[in-house]
Amino acid sequence: MDIVPLDCLQAGETARIADIEGCVDIVTRLAEIGLRNGAVVRMVQPGRPCILALDNQRLSFRPEDCTHVFVEVVPAGAVTV
């Protein structure tokens, strides 16, 4: 599976978060709201900021230079989010 930055996801694509790089404080904050390694997200609306579906919640998210979220694209139908 290819690891790509989160921003590269197309609308409707589902992916598993592989790695979040950035300063500890921010990575912790993201984990608290649910964006953590292993979490499965679906891109609802790409852009800056984008809208992500994570379980039953919707998050608006704009990555910045200091944080990189890398994801592993999950084939369609494998996981429902």
């Binding site: 950035g22 300063c23 921010i26 904050r29 993201l30 709201i33 964006l35 900021p49 809208i51 919640q57 919707r58 998050l59 608006s60 998210f61 704009r62 990555p63 910045e64 230079d65 200091c66 944080t67």
Partner: peptide, 12 residues
């Protein structure tokens, strides 16, 4: 300072 990423819940 560095711009932190923007993350916000969109409640139902």
């Amino acid at each position: 300072g560095e711009t932190p990423p923007f993350v916000m819940e969109l409640p139902s």
